[in-house]
Design a protein around this nucleic acid. Structure first.
Lengths: 348, 348
DNA sequence: CTGAAAGCGCTTACAG
DNA sequence: CTGAAAGCGCTTACAG
């Protein structure tokens, strides 16, 4: 029913090869024959069959963005990763398709390594990620948005955690804060996401540099858990004047929770939402100060790295990008207390 | 390099057809030959080429969920649609792929109607949706999550707006509210999304039934716009005791905006987040009462309708599902005022 | 139960 | 500049 190249060739009175040359612009064709072919395509409403093309050329020009949506949906910054990646693919005349998978890559063999996609961009990368071996075994080109523990031989784009954390901490230090708690989120499973490990290491490094006693207070990733964390904060670190929170939902919950305990943000405690989307930013009262994830940029870079790889470029060092400090009203000058009080907490 | 069926056939000493029968379980094969073939597949690490299979069988077992992510990302309930659809596809041994497109379907011809996907599930449907004609022209099976103005001949699953609105309005009426404003969101473009039209019609119907003077106050879909709407509300409908808000971000902003004007939620005004995700629900203070979108269920139903269509089933009436009332703390008994005051607003 | 062979709709050396 | 033909790796009547 649908017209094939053969139909077009017949109607234009040329060979099927010539039609292919016209369609793909792969060889010189005289303007006259080209016109005849194009007319015939128009007449027949020809659309080339991508499957046949893929089989013959071993290329689909489709790349898959794989993320663990089956486990935790497409929340927060993920949307921006997708959009950035889709635009980049489209600009290079590729198609991006999002493939919802689980954290283990359980769906991966079904779609990948069977000729349907030219390559894969993998998100939410863990320090030890079984999907990396899986993709290697499936023999499909792939790049990571994020990093495993050992990145040698891999194509990666990621956040520059050190510089991003520096933005957050120095913003607070400049405001006179010296008791800055770091509240990373912990996800459902036990997997160690690369970004959690690296963000915490960056915090410890910055804390050391600024002589801040490091306090790390993990919190499950949800608004209610953020609320609950407000209670724990008082006992874990009563002298804290600022909190760097690694999850937008936790940040929103923490602010609400602190407020309902009579603590004023930012007068009593400053809060920074660290490497998150801007999702809850203005839904909070006051609007949050955020170091936002350069998500759409990383989506774009991930796709571009993959496309370079498809053209045979060798792996490079991971490409890193810094988050953007978006000032809000949840950070302010540290409250002045007597230094004695700050330096010597009452013994337990 | 990768083993083909021919390689497997050679190694097992059978014909390529027999390998195909084993791989697809399409014909009886004696246990002995089956075992030989399976051993050969194992030895060679055989994975069948889906592209070749698709070309020969005209089926890819891939369906695409198309949404306008290029225009407004994957926010709110969209994530749940994706997850519900992906699970349903997976359960039927299909693969779901998410295809980020724009509102006009600009990317559609590139992927669809060229043999790569067996069918399409379309989201964010407008009353007049050019993509419907496009998909018809591309001659690919598709179902809608949502409805155009005229649904005859189409496969649709959608929200039951009337019953969902009834849930919201009667929840408020039972609490003694009679001045209930409806605040739908207006999106960037001018397209009339089916759900906006139908939700508003449902509101007007319920308002009439309960003798509520209908007040419709559209608001752009963002938290800051929700805040701004708090100001407008006072002038547009000073006597309102409840607001039904058709967007989670607007609901969050409205609550914050009202509060910063000294209005207490829910004592002074009740707020219902209508047919939204639960996204901002507990980030708000107080947590919102929500009529939540049955998103993952609709995702599932959309895929299932498509699969039935692929098996040749004729179109049915649209399949409708009701939202779920999730009680929160943003609704309460209407404040008692003198009936006179309520019944006769001061003349302008 | 198994196999030989046509065919899916393209791409791409190779010849001319 | 154009064409005849092999081949991509499968599926599926058809025969036996």
């Amino acid at each position: 029913m649908a017209a094939t190249m053969q139909d077009v060739a017949d109607r234009a009175g040329v060979s099927i090869a010539t039609v292919s040359f016209v369609v793909n612009n792969t060889k010189r064709v005289t303007p006259e024959t080209r016109a005849r072919v194009e007319q015939a395509m128009q007449d027949l409403g020809f659309r080339r069959n991508l499957v046949a093309r893929a089989l013959a050329s071993r290329r689909t020009r489709i790349i898959a963005l794989v993320l663990a949506a089956l486990d935790h949906g497409i929340r927060g910054a993920s949307s921006d990763f997708v959009v950035g990646a889709a635009w980049a693919a489209s600009a290079a005349d590729y198609h991006l398709v999002v493939y919802p998978d689980d954290k283990k890559g359980g769906q991966l063999p079904a779609l990948v390594g069977q000729g349907l996609v030219d390559g894969v961009v993998l998100m939410e990368v863990q320090m030890e990620d079984s999907r990396v071996e899986l993709l290697t075994r499936l023999d499909v080109p792939f790049t990571l948005i994020g990093r495993t523990g050992d990145t040698s031989g891999l194509y990666c784009v990621d956040i520059d955690f050190d510089t991003s954390m520096q933005l957050a901490i120095e913003h607070l230090v400049d405001l006179g804060h010296h008791r800055i708690v770091y509240m990373p989120s912990i996800e459902g499973g036990a997997e160690r996401l690369g970004r959690h490990i690296r963000a915490e290491a960056a915090y410890r490094r910055m804390a050391k540099q600024h002589r801040i006693p490091p306090v790390v207070m993990p919190c499950p990733s949800s608004v209610p858990d953020g609320r609950a964390a407000a209670v724990r904060l008082a006992s874990v670190s009563p002298e804290a004047t600022a909190v760097v929170v690694g999850d937008e939902a936790v940040a929103a919950g923490l602010v609400a929770g602190l407020q309902s305990r009579g603590i004023t943000i930012p007068d009593d405690i400053s809060v920074v939402s660290f490497l998150t989307s801007l999702e809850y930013r203005s839904a909070c009262n006051p609007p949050l100060t955020v170091v936002s994830t350069p998500a759409s940029e990383l989506g774009r870079l991930g796709v571009q790295a993959l496309l370079r790889q498809l053209e045979g470029a060798p792996p490079t060092e991971p490409v890193l990008r810094v988050g953007v400090l978006v000032p809000g009203e949840s950070t302010r000058q540290a409250p002045t207390r007597t230094p004695a009080r700050r330096r010597r907490p009452t013994p337990i």
